[in-house]
Simulated scan of single mutants.
Amino acid sequence: MRRFWLPLLAFAALVALLAAALWRPPAPPGGAAMVGQPAPTLRLARLDAPQRSLGRDDLLGRPWVLNVWASWCAPCRQEMPALKALAATGHVPVVGLNHKDEAAQASAWLAREGDPFVANLVDADGHAGLEWGVVAVPETFVIDRDGIVRFKHSGVLTEALVRERLLPLLESLGG
């Protein structure tokens, strides 16, 4: 009789474990898990001056925006008017993270499209993007004065999104 119940109990326990895993709330997609967490402390070379670098700690004390982009990214071209409008407000520094790109192509793209960034950081191998939880470019993050990620947007940043979400958030953060 015991031979019958032991496998049945083991099977029931396995079913219970699988059911619990299915009913668990899903993890936030991509780097949304970054929201509420400290921004990565990476120090990266600047696109315009590779001998100089910039990191999160250099930007502490005031809110800032990080935009992940690439010259090969068509949606990145679409969001340039919104980034230029955000940068033009002067509320916060807008930093670019050039993701998996060639430096010469990135520099030429910025010269052609316009450069709304106070600095562009180089992420040629994509390691920094992994640290930030980047799933696909473009992605935009808002970081508060203490270096905590307060907002993440995956996809094209629009002028409406800047006006309706980013500017009020930045204002509430003291930007």
Rank of each mutant, 00 (worst) to 15 (best):
N67C: 09
H153N: 07
G61E: 07
A33R: 04
S172T: 15
A104W: 08
G61L: 00
L66E: 03
S107P: 03
L167G: 12
R62P: 12
C76H: 00
L169Y: 13
A13V: 14
E102K: 13
V15E: 08
Q105R: 13
I143R: 07
R43E: 15
E131L: 11
L60P: 03
L173E: 12
L157D: 04
V149Q: 03
Q105L: 10
M1E: 07
L110Y: 13
T140D: 05
L54G: 11
S53E: 15
G126F: 01
V149I: 07
P81W: 01
E159N: 07
R3H: 12
L121P: 10
A32Y: 12
L18Y: 05
A39D: 09
Q37W: 06
P25L: 01
L14S: 07
E113T: 04
V122H: 13
K100G: 03
F11H: 06
P50K: 03
L97G: 01
G114L: 02
L44G: 09
A111C: 06
L110Q: 13
W23H: 09
A160F: 07
E159H: 02
R52V: 14
D146M: 08
P93R: 09
A12D: 10
T89P: 15
R150W: 14
A111F: 02
G55L: 05
A27Y: 03
R3G: 10
W5N: 04
S172I: 05
G36T: 05
V118A: 15
L83A: 01
W5V: 11
M34N: 00
S154T: 15
V15W: 13
P7M: 11
A85I: 00
P138C: 07
G114S: 05
A136N: 09
A119I: 12
L161V: 10
L97R: 06
L9N: 13
G114M: 07
A27D: 13
L121Y: 10
D101H: 06
P7I: 12
A88Q: 06
L121K: 01
A85V: 00
R2Y: 04
T158F: 08
L9A: 15
R52I: 11
H127L: 08
H153Q: 09
V65S: 08
V149L: 05
W69F: 14
G90D: 13
D115C: 02
E131C: 05
K84P: 07
H127P: 00
D48E: 15
A33K: 03
R3K: 03
P29W: 01
A32E: 14
A128S: 10
D144A: 12
D58V: 13
V122G: 08
G96I: 14
M1Y: 12
D57P: 07
Q105A: 13
A108I: 03
R52P: 03
